[in-house]
Amino acid sequence: MNAKFKVDGWVEFVMGFRSPAGRFRIVRELPPDKGEPSYRVKGENEAFERVARESELRRFGAKAGSLD
């Protein structure tokens, strides 16, 4: 399965319940989670990293509802 996002790219979380706001940098690709590409991401204003599945992310600045 091909990953949609590249390391050092900027993404944001798809807005929903408990979705953090802001811009996040892809730190590294992780093994798939339940068959879906996963990533370690770091918020530009956070001291820690998060793990996110591809369906939880979109390219930074993409319009809501976009397939990016």
Score class of each variant (00 low, 15 high):
Pro32Ile: 02
Glu36Trp: 06
Ala47Glu: 15
Ser55Met: 10
Ala64Phe: 04
Pro37Arg: 12
Met1Phe: 04
Leu30Ile: 04
Phe48Val: 13
Gly22Asp: 10
Lys34Arg: 12
Gly43Phe: 05
Asn45Arg: 09
Ser38Gln: 08
Gly16Val: 05
Ala62Pro: 05
Ala3Pro: 11
Ala21Arg: 09
Val7Met: 06
Ile26Val: 09
Lys4Tyr: 05
Glu36Asp: 05
Arg25Phe: 03
Asp68Met: 11
Met15His: 13
Ala62Trp: 03
Asp8Val: 01
Gly35Tyr: 11
Ser66Ile: 00
Gly22Asn: 01
Phe13Tyr: 07
Arg40Met: 10
Ser66His: 10
Lys6Arg: 15
Pro32Phe: 09
Asp8Phe: 13
Arg59Cys: 04
Arg18Phe: 13
Ser66Thr: 02
Lys63Ala: 07
Arg40Cys: 02
Glu36Lys: 09
Glu46Asn: 13
Pro37Leu: 14
Ser38Thr: 10
Val7Phe: 05
Gly65Asp: 09
Asp68Glu: 14
Gly9Arg: 01
Ile26Arg: 03
Ser38Pro: 05
Glu54Asn: 07
Glu12Gly: 12
Ser38Gly: 13
Trp10Ala: 14
Phe60Gln: 00
Asp68Ile: 11
Asp8Asn: 13
Asn45Gln: 12
Glu49Gly: 10
Asn2Ala: 14
Arg23Ala: 08
Lys4Gly: 09
Phe60Gly: 00
Tyr39Asp: 05
Pro37Phe: 03
Pro32Ser: 01
Phe60Val: 02
Leu67Thr: 15
Gly61Tyr: 00
Phe13Gly: 00
Phe60Cys: 07
Glu54His: 06
Val7Cys: 01
Arg58Val: 06
Leu57Gln: 00
Pro32Leu: 05
Pro20Ala: 02
Asn2Ser: 12
Arg23Ser: 02
Ala64Met: 12
Gly43Thr: 08
Glu29Leu: 10
Glu29Gly: 06
Arg23Lys: 10
Val51Pro: 05
Phe17Gly: 03
Ile26Trp: 10
Phe24Asp: 05
Lys42Tyr: 03
Gly65Gln: 03
Ser19Phe: 02
Glu56His: 15
Gly61Gln: 06
Val14Gly: 01
Glu46Met: 15
Val7Pro: 01
Asn45Gly: 11
Phe13Ala: 06
Lys6Glu: 15
Gly22Cys: 13
Glu44Phe: 10
Gly22Val: 09
Leu57Ser: 09
Leu67Ser: 08
Asn2Thr: 14
Arg50Lys: 15
Lys63Gln: 14
Lys4Met: 14
Gly16Asp: 14
Val11Cys: 06
Ser66Asp: 04
Asp8Ser: 11
Glu36His: 06
Ala3Thr: 13
Pro31Gln: 07
Phe5Lys: 11
Ile26Asn: 02
Pro32Ala: 05
Gly43His: 08
Phe24Gly: 01
Ala21Ile: 09
Met15Ser: 14
Ala64Gln: 10
Gly43Val: 04
Arg23Gly: 13
Val41Pro: 01
Val51Met: 03
Asp68Asn: 15
Met1Ser: 12
Phe60Pro: 04
Phe24Val: 04
Glu56Asp: 03
Arg53Phe: 12
Gly61Trp: 03
Gly35Leu: 06
Arg28His: 07
Leu57Met: 02
Phe5Glu: 02
Asp33Met: 08
Asp8Gln: 11
Gly61Ser: 07
Glu56Leu: 15
Phe48Gly: 09
